[in-house]
Write a protein that binds this DNA or RNA. Structure first.
Lengths: 286, 286
DNA sequence: TTAATAGTGTCTGTGAGACAATATGCT
DNA sequence: AGCATATTGTCTCACAGACACTATTAA
Protein backbone atom coordinates (compact mmCIF):
# COMPACT_ATOMS: atom_id res chain seq x y z
CA UNK A 1 0.00 0.00 0.00
CA UNK A 2 2.84 2.37 0.67
CA UNK A 3 6.41 2.44 1.83
CA UNK A 4 6.38 3.47 5.45
CA UNK A 5 8.42 1.01 7.43
CA UNK A 6 7.53 -0.91 10.49
CA UNK A 7 8.85 0.64 13.71
CA UNK A 8 12.28 -0.63 14.58
CA UNK A 9 14.44 -0.58 17.64
CA UNK A 10 17.08 1.33 15.76
CA UNK A 11 14.66 4.00 14.50
CA UNK A 12 12.30 4.71 17.36
CA UNK A 13 10.72 7.72 15.71
CA UNK A 14 9.24 5.57 12.98
CA UNK A 15 6.70 4.31 15.47
CA UNK A 16 4.81 7.54 15.08
CA UNK A 17 4.33 7.20 11.37
CA UNK A 18 1.00 5.84 10.37
CA UNK A 19 0.68 4.02 7.11
CA UNK A 20 -1.26 6.48 4.93
CA UNK A 21 -4.18 4.88 3.22
CA UNK A 22 -4.45 5.43 -0.52
CA UNK A 23 -7.12 3.41 -2.32
CA UNK A 24 -5.55 1.98 -5.44
CA UNK A 25 -7.89 -0.40 -7.18
CA UNK A 26 -11.39 0.31 -8.40
CA UNK A 27 -12.66 -2.55 -6.26
CA UNK A 28 -11.17 -0.85 -3.27
CA UNK A 29 -12.83 2.45 -4.08
CA UNK A 30 -16.13 0.72 -4.68
CA UNK A 31 -15.87 -1.07 -1.36
CA UNK A 32 -15.26 2.14 0.52
CA UNK A 33 -18.15 3.90 -1.18
CA UNK A 34 -20.51 1.05 -0.47
CA UNK A 35 -19.28 0.70 3.11
CA UNK A 36 -22.23 0.93 5.46
CA UNK A 37 -21.19 1.74 8.99
CA UNK A 38 -24.71 1.37 10.30
CA UNK A 39 -24.37 -2.39 10.47
CA UNK A 40 -21.79 -2.09 13.21
CA UNK A 41 -22.61 -1.25 16.82
CA UNK A 42 -22.25 2.47 17.44
CA UNK A 43 -21.29 4.10 20.67
CA UNK A 44 -20.60 7.55 22.05
CA UNK A 45 -17.21 8.64 23.21
CA UNK A 46 -16.32 10.92 26.08
CA UNK A 47 -13.12 12.05 27.71
CA UNK A 48 -12.82 12.58 31.45
CA UNK A 49 -9.82 14.06 33.17
CA UNK A 50 -8.48 13.60 36.67
CA UNK A 51 -6.84 17.00 37.13
CA UNK A 52 -4.45 16.84 40.06
CA UNK A 53 -2.79 19.72 41.81
CA UNK A 54 -0.99 20.29 45.09
CA UNK A 55 -2.24 22.77 47.67
CA UNK A 56 -0.76 23.19 51.08
CA UNK A 57 1.05 19.90 50.87
CA UNK A 58 -2.15 18.03 50.08
CA UNK A 59 -3.10 16.39 46.81
CA UNK A 60 -6.25 17.79 45.23
CA UNK A 61 -8.40 16.69 42.32
CA UNK A 62 -10.82 18.88 40.35
CA UNK A 63 -14.43 17.76 40.53
CA UNK A 64 -17.63 19.21 39.14
CA UNK A 65 -21.04 18.97 40.69
CA UNK A 66 -23.28 17.65 37.98
CA UNK A 67 -26.05 20.05 36.98
CA UNK A 68 -27.97 17.54 34.88
CA UNK A 69 -29.17 14.00 34.95
CA UNK A 70 -27.84 11.42 35.25
CA UNK A 71 -26.23 11.61 38.69
CA UNK A 72 -27.51 15.17 39.09
CA UNK A 73 -25.95 16.70 42.17
CA UNK A 74 -23.18 14.14 42.35
CA UNK A 75 -19.55 15.12 42.12
CA UNK A 76 -17.79 13.83 39.04
CA UNK A 77 -14.59 14.13 37.07
CA UNK A 78 -14.82 16.87 34.45
CA UNK A 79 -15.15 15.80 30.86
CA UNK A 80 -17.33 15.80 27.80
CA UNK A 81 -18.03 14.32 24.44
CA UNK A 82 -15.36 13.96 21.81
CA UNK A 83 -16.01 16.13 18.78
CA UNK A 84 -15.98 14.51 15.34
CA UNK A 85 -12.92 16.34 14.05
CA UNK A 86 -10.55 16.17 17.01
CA UNK A 87 -8.18 13.57 18.33
CA UNK A 88 -8.64 12.13 21.78
CA UNK A 89 -5.68 14.13 23.04
CA UNK A 90 -7.14 17.30 21.57
CA UNK A 91 -10.46 16.61 23.22
CA UNK A 92 -8.73 16.16 26.56
CA UNK A 93 -6.74 19.37 26.06
CA UNK A 94 -9.91 21.24 25.17
CA UNK A 95 -11.72 20.00 28.24
CA UNK A 96 -8.73 20.78 30.38
CA UNK A 97 -8.62 24.34 29.07
CA UNK A 98 -12.36 24.77 29.54
CA UNK A 99 -12.26 23.61 33.11
CA UNK A 100 -9.13 25.34 34.32
CA UNK A 101 -8.87 28.46 32.12
CA UNK A 102 -5.19 27.82 31.56
CA UNK A 103 -3.56 31.12 30.76
CA UNK A 104 -0.94 29.84 28.36
CA UNK A 105 2.11 30.19 30.55
CA UNK A 106 0.97 27.36 32.75
CA UNK A 107 3.04 24.25 32.90
CA UNK A 108 1.50 20.86 33.15
CA UNK A 109 1.34 17.30 32.02
CA UNK A 110 -1.43 15.36 30.33
CA UNK A 111 -1.53 11.69 29.50
CA UNK A 112 -4.05 9.01 28.71
CA UNK A 113 -4.96 6.78 31.63
CA UNK A 114 -7.21 4.15 30.13
CA UNK A 115 -10.62 3.50 28.69
CA UNK A 116 -13.73 2.47 30.55
CA UNK A 117 -16.54 1.01 28.52
CA UNK A 118 -18.63 -1.41 30.51
CA UNK A 119 -22.19 -1.57 29.22
CA UNK A 120 -24.32 0.02 31.89
CA UNK A 121 -21.69 2.42 33.13
CA UNK A 122 -23.87 5.25 31.84
CA UNK A 123 -27.66 4.96 32.00
CA UNK A 124 -27.99 6.98 28.80
CA UNK A 125 -26.54 4.20 26.68
CA UNK A 126 -23.27 2.77 25.57
CA UNK A 127 -20.68 5.40 26.28
CA UNK A 128 -16.96 4.71 26.01
CA UNK A 129 -14.98 6.95 28.31
CA UNK A 130 -11.33 7.65 27.61
CA UNK A 131 -9.86 8.83 30.90
CA UNK A 132 -6.90 11.19 31.15
CA UNK A 133 -4.65 12.40 33.93
CA UNK A 134 -3.44 15.99 34.21
CA UNK A 135 -0.83 17.22 36.67
CA UNK A 136 -0.77 20.96 37.32
CA UNK A 137 0.94 23.35 39.69
CA UNK A 138 -1.38 25.19 42.01
CA UNK A 139 -4.05 26.85 39.89
CA UNK A 140 -7.08 28.84 41.00
CA UNK A 141 -10.50 27.25 41.37
CA UNK A 142 -12.21 27.34 37.98
CA UNK A 143 -15.38 29.03 36.96
CA UNK A 144 -18.31 26.69 36.60
CA UNK A 145 -18.83 25.73 32.99
CA UNK A 146 -22.14 25.23 31.31
CA UNK A 147 -22.15 21.59 32.32
CA UNK A 148 -21.24 22.13 35.94
CA UNK A 149 -23.17 23.79 38.72
CA UNK A 150 -20.02 23.99 40.76
CA UNK A 151 -16.42 23.05 40.21
CA UNK A 152 -13.68 23.02 42.77
CA UNK A 153 -10.55 21.21 43.85
CA UNK A 154 -11.08 18.56 46.50
CA UNK A 155 -8.35 17.26 48.75
CA UNK A 156 -8.24 13.49 48.35
CA UNK A 157 -8.27 13.11 52.11
CA UNK A 158 -11.44 15.17 52.36
CA UNK A 159 -13.15 13.07 49.71
CA UNK A 160 -12.41 10.01 51.78
CA UNK A 161 -13.33 11.60 55.08
CA UNK A 162 -16.61 13.10 53.89
CA UNK A 163 -17.44 9.96 51.94
CA UNK A 164 -18.20 11.95 48.82
CA UNK A 165 -20.06 9.88 46.25
CA UNK A 166 -18.76 10.15 42.73
CA UNK A 167 -20.91 9.66 39.65
CA UNK A 168 -20.71 6.75 37.20
CA UNK A 169 -17.63 4.56 37.58
CA UNK A 170 -15.55 7.58 38.53
CA UNK A 171 -14.58 5.99 41.88
CA UNK A 172 -12.58 3.41 40.02
CA UNK A 173 -11.23 5.87 37.47
CA UNK A 174 -10.00 8.15 40.24
CA UNK A 175 -8.42 5.25 42.10
CA UNK A 176 -6.66 4.11 38.95
CA UNK A 177 -5.52 7.67 38.30
CA UNK A 178 -4.08 7.97 41.80
CA UNK A 179 -2.23 4.69 41.46
CA UNK A 180 -0.88 5.66 38.05
CA UNK A 181 0.28 9.06 39.27
CA UNK A 182 1.89 7.56 42.37
CA UNK A 183 3.73 5.05 40.24
CA UNK A 184 4.88 7.61 37.71
CA UNK A 185 6.59 9.66 40.39
CA UNK A 186 8.89 6.72 40.96
CA UNK A 187 10.55 6.67 37.59
CA UNK A 188 9.85 10.06 36.02
CA UNK A 189 10.51 13.68 36.94
CA UNK A 190 6.81 14.49 36.92
CA UNK A 191 6.83 15.54 40.57
CA UNK A 192 8.27 18.88 39.48
CA UNK A 193 5.12 19.45 37.44
CA UNK A 194 3.24 20.02 40.68
CA UNK A 195 5.70 22.66 41.83
CA UNK A 196 5.99 26.32 40.91
CA UNK A 197 8.79 27.31 38.57
CA UNK A 198 11.08 27.74 41.55
CA UNK A 199 10.76 25.37 44.46
CA UNK A 200 12.63 24.07 47.45
CA UNK A 201 13.57 20.47 47.99
CA UNK A 202 11.01 20.39 50.77
CA UNK A 203 8.33 21.49 48.32
CA UNK A 204 9.34 18.64 46.06
CA UNK A 205 9.48 16.16 48.90
CA UNK A 206 5.98 17.11 50.00
CA UNK A 207 4.72 16.16 46.54
CA UNK A 208 6.06 12.66 46.99
CA UNK A 209 4.79 12.45 50.54
CA UNK A 210 1.30 13.55 49.59
CA UNK A 211 1.13 11.19 46.66
CA UNK A 212 2.50 8.20 48.53
CA UNK A 213 1.01 8.89 51.96
CA UNK A 214 4.41 8.37 53.58
CA UNK A 215 7.01 10.48 55.31
CA UNK A 216 10.39 10.51 53.61
CA UNK A 217 13.74 11.22 55.20
CA UNK A 218 14.59 14.77 54.19
CA UNK A 219 18.33 14.20 54.19
CA UNK A 220 18.20 11.12 51.98
CA UNK A 221 15.64 12.72 49.70
CA UNK A 222 17.70 15.84 49.19
CA UNK A 223 20.81 13.82 48.47
CA UNK A 224 19.03 11.62 45.97
CA UNK A 225 17.20 14.43 44.17
CA UNK A 226 20.43 16.34 43.64
CA UNK A 227 22.44 13.29 42.64
CA UNK A 228 19.97 12.24 39.96
CA UNK A 229 21.15 13.81 36.75
CA UNK A 230 18.81 16.41 35.25
CA UNK A 231 16.15 16.21 37.94
CA UNK A 232 16.64 19.55 39.70
CA UNK A 233 18.91 22.52 38.96
CA UNK A 234 20.11 24.59 41.91
CA UNK A 235 19.54 28.33 41.70
CA UNK A 236 21.64 30.99 43.39
CA UNK A 237 18.71 32.04 45.51
CA UNK A 238 17.16 31.18 48.79
CA UNK A 239 13.64 31.44 50.00
CA UNK A 240 13.06 32.81 53.44
CA UNK A 241 9.86 33.40 55.32
CA UNK A 242 8.02 30.52 53.74
CA UNK A 243 8.41 28.58 56.93
CA UNK A 244 9.72 28.96 60.41
CA UNK A 245 13.13 27.48 59.93
CA UNK A 246 16.29 28.27 58.07
CA UNK A 247 16.19 29.65 54.52
CA UNK A 248 16.00 27.01 51.81
CA UNK A 249 17.79 26.95 48.49
CA UNK A 250 15.61 27.25 45.40
CA UNK A 251 15.66 24.86 42.46
CA UNK A 252 14.21 24.62 38.98
CA UNK A 253 13.21 21.50 37.09
CA UNK A 254 15.96 19.93 35.01
CA UNK A 255 15.91 18.56 31.51
CA UNK A 256 15.45 14.90 32.36
CA UNK A 257 12.07 13.24 31.99
CA UNK A 258 13.08 9.85 33.37
CA UNK A 259 14.68 9.22 36.73
CA UNK A 260 17.85 7.11 36.85
CA UNK A 261 17.96 5.48 39.23
CA UNK A 262 14.30 5.41 40.14
CA UNK A 263 12.93 6.99 43.32
CA UNK A 264 11.23 3.88 44.67
CA UNK A 265 8.34 4.03 47.09
CA UNK A 266 8.96 2.50 50.49
CA UNK A 267 7.28 -0.87 50.80
CA UNK A 268 4.53 0.40 53.07
CA UNK A 269 3.42 2.84 50.38
CA UNK A 270 3.33 0.28 47.61
CA UNK A 271 -0.11 -1.12 48.17
CA UNK A 272 -1.91 2.13 48.74
CA UNK A 273 -4.00 0.95 45.82
CA UNK A 274 -4.12 -2.42 44.23
CA UNK A 275 -1.34 -2.66 41.68
CA UNK A 276 -2.04 -3.69 38.14
CA UNK A 277 -5.76 -3.16 38.50
CA UNK A 278 -6.35 -3.13 34.77
CA UNK A 279 -4.56 -6.38 34.09
CA UNK A 280 -6.55 -9.53 33.64
CA UNK A 281 -4.85 -12.83 34.08
CA UNK A 282 -6.48 -15.21 31.68
CA UNK A 283 -5.75 -18.15 33.89
CA UNK A 284 -3.23 -18.76 36.56
CA UNK A 285 -3.29 -22.46 37.25
CA UNK A 286 0.16 -23.03 38.58
CA UNK B 1 -28.00 8.99 44.88
CA UNK B 2 -26.72 6.05 46.82
CA UNK B 3 -24.35 5.05 49.56
CA UNK B 4 -21.30 3.60 47.88
CA UNK B 5 -18.24 5.32 49.22
CA UNK B 6 -15.42 6.94 47.45
CA UNK B 7 -12.34 4.73 47.10
CA UNK B 8 -9.99 5.15 50.00
CA UNK B 9 -6.41 4.24 50.66
CA UNK B 10 -7.50 2.08 53.55
CA UNK B 11 -10.10 0.17 51.56
CA UNK B 12 -8.58 -0.42 48.17
CA UNK B 13 -11.28 -2.81 47.04
CA UNK B 14 -13.86 -0.06 47.10
CA UNK B 15 -12.33 1.29 43.94
CA UNK B 16 -14.05 -1.39 41.97
CA UNK B 17 -17.53 -0.49 43.10
CA UNK B 18 -19.46 1.64 40.70
CA UNK B 19 -22.14 3.88 41.97
CA UNK B 20 -25.35 2.17 40.84
CA UNK B 21 -27.72 4.52 39.12
CA UNK B 22 -31.30 4.55 40.35
CA UNK B 23 -33.55 7.26 38.94
CA UNK B 24 -35.48 8.77 41.82
CA UNK B 25 -37.47 11.76 40.74
CA UNK B 26 -40.07 11.94 38.01
CA UNK B 27 -38.05 14.69 36.35
CA UNK B 28 -35.12 12.35 36.23
CA UNK B 29 -37.13 9.58 34.64
CA UNK B 30 -38.59 11.99 32.14
CA UNK B 31 -35.14 13.24 31.25
CA UNK B 32 -33.85 9.77 30.59
CA UNK B 33 -36.84 8.87 28.47
CA UNK B 34 -36.52 12.02 26.42
CA UNK B 35 -32.76 11.63 26.09
CA UNK B 36 -31.79 11.70 22.44
CA UNK B 37 -28.37 10.24 21.82
CA UNK B 38 -28.45 11.14 18.15
CA UNK B 39 -27.43 14.69 18.88
CA UNK B 40 -24.01 13.49 20.03
CA UNK B 41 -21.24 12.36 17.72
CA UNK B 42 -21.29 8.61 17.31
CA UNK B 43 -18.33 6.39 16.63
CA UNK B 44 -17.49 2.73 16.27
CA UNK B 45 -15.36 0.85 18.69
CA UNK B 46 -12.87 -1.92 18.03
CA UNK B 47 -10.39 -3.85 20.10
CA UNK B 48 -7.03 -4.90 18.74
CA UNK B 49 -4.60 -7.16 20.55
CA UNK B 50 -0.86 -7.43 20.39
CA UNK B 51 -0.47 -11.11 21.24
CA UNK B 52 3.12 -11.82 22.19
CA UNK B 53 4.79 -15.16 22.62
CA UNK B 54 8.31 -16.51 22.80
CA UNK B 55 9.65 -19.00 20.30
CA UNK B 56 13.22 -20.20 20.16
CA UNK B 57 14.37 -17.31 22.30
CA UNK B 58 12.81 -14.75 19.98
CA UNK B 59 9.83 -12.53 20.68
CA UNK B 60 6.90 -13.05 18.32
CA UNK B 61 3.66 -11.20 17.73
CA UNK B 62 0.54 -12.58 16.09
CA UNK B 63 -0.48 -10.80 12.89
CA UNK B 64 -3.24 -11.40 10.39
CA UNK B 65 -3.10 -10.69 6.69
CA UNK B 66 -6.14 -8.63 5.96
CA UNK B 67 -8.57 -10.27 3.57
CA UNK B 68 -10.72 -7.18 3.02
CA UNK B 69 -10.41 -3.51 2.39
CA UNK B 70 -9.13 -1.30 3.79
CA UNK B 71 -5.45 -2.26 3.80
CA UNK B 72 -6.29 -5.51 2.03
CA UNK B 73 -3.21 -7.71 1.95
CA UNK B 74 -1.48 -5.79 4.71
CA UNK B 75 -0.48 -7.44 7.95
CA UNK B 76 -2.34 -6.13 10.98
CA UNK B 77 -2.93 -6.78 14.64
CA UNK B 78 -5.93 -9.08 15.17
CA UNK B 79 -9.09 -7.50 16.50
CA UNK B 80 -12.67 -6.68 15.80
CA UNK B 81 -15.69 -4.66 16.72
CA UNK B 82 -16.97 -4.49 20.27
CA UNK B 83 -20.38 -6.11 20.63
CA UNK B 84 -23.17 -4.09 22.28
CA UNK B 85 -23.50 -6.29 25.34
CA UNK B 86 -19.90 -6.99 26.29
CA UNK B 87 -17.28 -5.09 28.22
CA UNK B 88 -14.05 -4.05 26.56
CA UNK B 89 -12.18 -6.74 28.47
CA UNK B 90 -14.69 -9.33 27.34
CA UNK B 91 -14.35 -8.22 23.76
CA UNK B 92 -10.58 -8.56 24.01
CA UNK B 93 -10.90 -12.01 25.60
CA UNK B 94 -13.28 -13.09 22.87
CA UNK B 95 -10.97 -11.92 20.12
CA UNK B 96 -8.03 -13.56 21.83
CA UNK B 97 -9.87 -16.87 22.04
CA UNK B 98 -11.00 -16.60 18.43
CA UNK B 99 -7.50 -15.95 17.17
CA UNK B 100 -5.53 -18.41 19.27
CA UNK B 101 -8.03 -21.20 20.02
CA UNK B 102 -7.00 -21.21 23.65
CA UNK B 103 -7.70 -24.67 25.02
CA UNK B 104 -8.63 -23.61 28.52
CA UNK B 105 -5.58 -24.85 30.33
CA UNK B 106 -3.48 -22.15 28.76
CA UNK B 107 -1.88 -19.57 30.97
CA UNK B 108 -1.61 -16.01 29.91
CA UNK B 109 -1.99 -12.35 30.69
CA UNK B 110 -4.20 -9.72 29.13
CA UNK B 111 -4.25 -6.01 29.85
CA UNK B 112 -5.40 -2.82 28.25
CA UNK B 113 -2.67 -0.84 26.51
CA UNK B 114 -4.38 2.35 25.43
CA UNK B 115 -6.87 3.84 23.04
CA UNK B 116 -6.17 5.21 19.59
CA UNK B 117 -8.81 7.45 18.09
CA UNK B 118 -7.34 9.96 15.69
CA UNK B 119 -9.85 10.97 13.03
CA UNK B 120 -8.56 9.50 9.80
CA UNK B 121 -6.89 6.48 11.37
CA UNK B 122 -9.46 4.35 9.57
CA UNK B 123 -10.74 5.36 6.11
CA UNK B 124 -14.13 3.85 6.88
CA UNK B 125 -14.93 6.54 9.41
CA UNK B 126 -14.39 7.44 13.00
CA UNK B 127 -13.29 4.28 14.71
CA UNK B 128 -11.97 4.26 18.26
CA UNK B 129 -9.56 1.39 18.81
CA UNK B 130 -8.94 0.09 22.30
CA UNK B 131 -5.64 -1.78 22.13
CA UNK B 132 -4.74 -4.68 24.40
CA UNK B 133 -1.60 -6.66 25.12
CA UNK B 134 -1.58 -10.41 25.65
CA UNK B 135 1.39 -12.46 26.81
CA UNK B 136 1.26 -16.19 26.13
CA UNK B 137 3.58 -19.17 26.37
CA UNK B 138 4.40 -20.80 23.08
CA UNK B 139 1.11 -21.63 21.36
CA UNK B 140 0.55 -23.08 17.89
CA UNK B 141 -0.13 -20.91 14.88
CA UNK B 142 -3.85 -20.21 14.72
CA UNK B 143 -6.34 -21.08 12.05
CA UNK B 144 -7.31 -18.18 9.86
CA UNK B 145 -10.55 -16.62 11.01
CA UNK B 146 -13.25 -15.25 8.77
CA UNK B 147 -11.60 -11.86 8.77
CA UNK B 148 -8.09 -13.06 8.07
CA UNK B 149 -6.66 -14.65 4.97
CA UNK B 150 -3.65 -15.77 6.96
CA UNK B 151 -2.57 -15.51 10.55
CA UNK B 152 0.80 -16.36 11.99
CA UNK B 153 3.32 -15.36 14.57
CA UNK B 154 6.03 -13.03 13.33
CA UNK B 155 9.37 -12.61 15.02
CA UNK B 156 9.80 -8.91 15.78
CA UNK B 157 13.26 -9.02 14.24
CA UNK B 158 11.85 -10.43 11.02
CA UNK B 159 9.22 -7.70 10.85
CA UNK B 160 11.99 -5.14 11.03
CA UNK B 161 14.29 -6.93 8.65
CA UNK B 162 11.67 -7.59 6.00
CA UNK B 163 10.21 -4.11 6.43
CA UNK B 164 6.70 -5.47 6.80
CA UNK B 165 4.07 -2.78 6.46
CA UNK B 166 1.34 -2.83 9.05
CA UNK B 167 -2.16 -1.54 8.44
CA UNK B 168 -3.72 1.56 10.01
CA UNK B 169 -1.75 3.04 12.92
CA UNK B 170 -0.69 -0.43 14.01
CA UNK B 171 3.00 0.47 13.70
CA UNK B 172 2.60 2.84 16.59
CA UNK B 173 0.35 0.52 18.55
CA UNK B 174 2.86 -2.30 18.23
CA UNK B 175 5.71 -0.03 19.25
CA UNK B 176 3.78 1.14 22.30
CA UNK B 177 2.94 -2.46 23.13
CA UNK B 178 6.58 -3.50 22.94
CA UNK B 179 7.64 -0.64 25.16
CA UNK B 180 4.90 -1.40 27.68
CA UNK B 181 5.78 -5.08 27.78
CA UNK B 182 9.49 -4.36 28.12
CA UNK B 183 8.78 -1.99 30.97
CA UNK B 184 6.44 -4.38 32.75
CA UNK B 185 9.12 -7.06 32.91
CA UNK B 186 11.09 -4.71 35.11
CA UNK B 187 8.72 -4.56 38.01
CA UNK B 188 6.36 -7.51 37.60
CA UNK B 189 6.74 -11.29 37.37
CA UNK B 190 5.13 -11.36 33.94
CA UNK B 191 8.22 -12.84 32.32
CA UNK B 192 7.13 -16.23 33.65
CA UNK B 193 3.95 -15.91 31.59
CA UNK B 194 6.05 -16.51 28.48
CA UNK B 195 7.51 -19.71 29.88
CA UNK B 196 6.06 -23.19 30.08
CA UNK B 197 4.85 -24.42 33.44
CA UNK B 198 8.34 -25.65 34.25
CA UNK B 199 11.30 -23.67 33.03
CA UNK B 200 14.98 -23.14 33.66
CA UNK B 201 16.55 -19.88 34.72
CA UNK B 202 18.08 -19.69 31.27
CA UNK B 203 14.61 -19.93 29.73
CA UNK B 204 13.53 -17.06 31.92
CA UNK B 205 16.63 -15.06 31.19
CA UNK B 206 16.09 -15.46 27.46
CA UNK B 207 12.67 -13.84 27.87
CA UNK B 208 14.28 -10.74 29.32
CA UNK B 209 17.03 -10.74 26.73
CA UNK B 210 14.60 -11.04 23.84
CA UNK B 211 12.36 -8.32 25.21
CA UNK B 212 15.15 -5.92 26.03
CA UNK B 213 17.54 -6.74 23.19
CA UNK B 214 20.42 -7.11 25.63
CA UNK B 215 22.57 -9.88 26.99
CA UNK B 216 22.34 -10.36 30.74
CA UNK B 217 24.92 -11.91 33.02
CA UNK B 218 23.62 -15.39 33.73
CA UNK B 219 25.18 -15.60 37.18
CA UNK B 220 23.78 -12.30 38.38
CA UNK B 221 20.42 -13.01 36.81
CA UNK B 222 20.11 -16.39 38.52
CA UNK B 223 21.06 -14.93 41.88
CA UNK B 224 18.58 -12.09 41.55
CA UNK B 225 15.69 -14.21 40.32
CA UNK B 226 16.07 -16.63 43.21
CA UNK B 227 16.54 -13.91 45.80
CA UNK B 228 13.39 -12.07 44.80
CA UNK B 229 10.64 -13.41 47.00
CA UNK B 230 7.89 -15.30 45.21
CA UNK B 231 9.32 -14.94 41.72
CA UNK B 232 10.43 -18.51 41.02
CA UNK B 233 10.06 -21.73 43.00
CA UNK B 234 12.76 -24.36 42.61
CA UNK B 235 11.60 -27.87 41.75
CA UNK B 236 13.43 -31.07 42.64
CA UNK B 237 14.00 -31.80 39.02
CA UNK B 238 16.54 -31.07 36.37
CA UNK B 239 16.24 -30.84 32.67
CA UNK B 240 18.87 -32.52 30.59
CA UNK B 241 19.25 -32.77 26.86
CA UNK B 242 17.67 -29.42 26.19
CA UNK B 243 21.09 -28.03 25.48
CA UNK B 244 24.63 -29.20 25.21
CA UNK B 245 25.87 -28.34 28.68
CA UNK B 246 25.20 -29.35 32.21
CA UNK B 247 21.64 -30.18 33.35
CA UNK B 248 19.65 -27.19 34.57
CA UNK B 249 17.32 -27.05 37.54
CA UNK B 250 13.66 -26.54 36.80
CA UNK B 251 11.49 -23.83 38.35
CA UNK B 252 7.86 -22.87 38.48
CA UNK B 253 6.37 -19.40 38.75
CA UNK B 254 5.88 -18.14 42.29
CA UNK B 255 2.97 -16.35 43.86
CA UNK B 256 4.27 -12.82 43.56
CA UNK B 257 2.95 -10.50 40.88
CA UNK B 258 5.28 -7.59 41.63
CA UNK B 259 9.05 -7.72 41.77
CA UNK B 260 10.82 -6.29 44.82
CA UNK B 261 13.31 -5.05 44.15
CA UNK B 262 12.74 -4.40 40.49
CA UNK B 263 14.75 -6.07 37.74
CA UNK B 264 15.91 -2.90 36.04
CA UNK B 265 16.95 -2.79 32.42
CA UNK B 266 20.55 -1.88 31.78
CA UNK B 267 20.87 1.69 30.54
CA UNK B 268 21.61 0.70 26.97
CA UNK B 269 18.26 -1.12 26.76
CA UNK B 270 16.24 1.76 28.15
CA UNK B 271 15.63 3.73 25.01
CA UNK B 272 14.81 0.85 22.71
CA UNK B 273 11.59 2.77 22.23
CA UNK B 274 10.73 6.28 23.19
CA UNK B 275 9.53 6.31 26.77
CA UNK B 276 6.29 7.91 27.72
CA UNK B 277 5.05 8.06 24.17
CA UNK B 278 1.47 8.74 25.21
CA UNK B 279 2.27 11.60 27.49
CA UNK B 280 1.72 15.13 26.33
CA UNK B 281 3.42 17.94 28.09
CA UNK B 282 1.08 20.86 27.94
CA UNK B 283 3.93 23.32 28.05
CA UNK B 284 7.43 23.09 29.28
CA UNK B 285 8.72 26.60 29.39
CA UNK B 286 11.32 26.33 32.09
C1' DT C 1 14.73 31.57 74.21
C1' DT C 2 12.50 27.99 71.93
C1' DA C 3 10.86 25.47 68.20
C1' DA C 4 10.99 24.34 63.57
C1' DT C 5 13.33 23.91 59.47
C1' DA C 6 17.59 23.40 56.23
C1' DG C 7 21.62 21.33 55.20
C1' DT C 8 25.73 18.27 55.98
C1' DG C 9 28.03 14.23 57.58
C1' DT C 10 28.52 9.35 58.88
C1' DC C 11 27.75 4.58 59.16
C1' DT C 12 25.81 0.16 57.67
C1' DG C 13 23.53 -3.23 54.97
C1' DT C 14 22.04 -4.59 50.54
C1' DG C 15 22.40 -5.43 45.98
C1' DA C 16 24.13 -4.80 41.17
C1' DG C 17 27.77 -5.84 38.15
C1' DA C 18 32.05 -7.93 36.72
C1' DC C 19 34.36 -12.00 36.58
C1' DA C 20 36.62 -16.36 38.19
C1' DA C 21 36.20 -21.25 39.14
C1' DT C 22 34.17 -25.66 39.11
C1' DA C 23 30.89 -29.26 37.71
C1' DT C 24 28.22 -31.70 34.29
C1' DG C 25 26.69 -33.66 30.05
C1' DC C 26 26.63 -33.59 24.89
C1' DT C 27 29.22 -34.40 20.50
C1' DA D 1 38.87 -35.11 24.76
C1' DG D 2 36.86 -30.91 24.01
C1' DC D 3 33.19 -27.80 24.35
C1' DA D 4 29.04 -25.63 25.83
C1' DT D 5 26.34 -24.90 29.58
C1' DA D 6 24.98 -24.64 34.72
C1' DT D 7 26.02 -23.23 39.15
C1' DT D 8 28.54 -21.28 42.91
C1' DG D 9 31.68 -17.99 44.73
C1' DT D 10 34.22 -13.53 45.25
C1' DC D 11 35.20 -8.81 45.01
C1' DT D 12 34.07 -3.94 44.39
C1' DC D 13 31.27 -0.02 44.00
C1' DA D 14 26.98 2.52 44.45
C1' DC D 15 23.24 3.66 46.92
C1' DA D 16 19.29 3.39 50.20
C1' DG D 17 18.13 4.09 54.80
C1' DA D 18 18.86 5.45 59.51
C1' DC D 19 20.36 8.92 62.30
C1' DA D 20 23.41 12.51 64.44
C1' DC D 21 24.81 17.24 64.28
C1' DT D 22 25.04 22.15 63.17
C1' DA D 23 23.17 26.42 61.29
C1' DT D 24 19.48 29.67 60.61
C1' DT D 25 15.14 31.79 60.98
C1' DA D 26 10.30 32.79 62.98
C1' DA D 27 7.40 32.98 66.96
Amino acid sequence: VNTVNHPTRSDPMSKYKMNPYIPESDAEKAYLEAYDPSKYPSVFTTVDIAIFTMRGGRLHVLLIERADFPYKGCWALPGGFVEPDETLDEAALRELAEETSLTGDQTGHLEQLGTYGDPGRDPRGRIIDVAYIALLPDVPDPEAGSDAAHARFWAIEDLVEEQVQLAFDHPRILADALERAAGKLEYTTLATTFCAEEFTLTDLRRVYEAMWGTALDKANFARKAQQTDGFVVAQDKQRTGGSRGAPARLFKAGDATDLHPAMLRPAEARNAFLPDADARTIRRNR
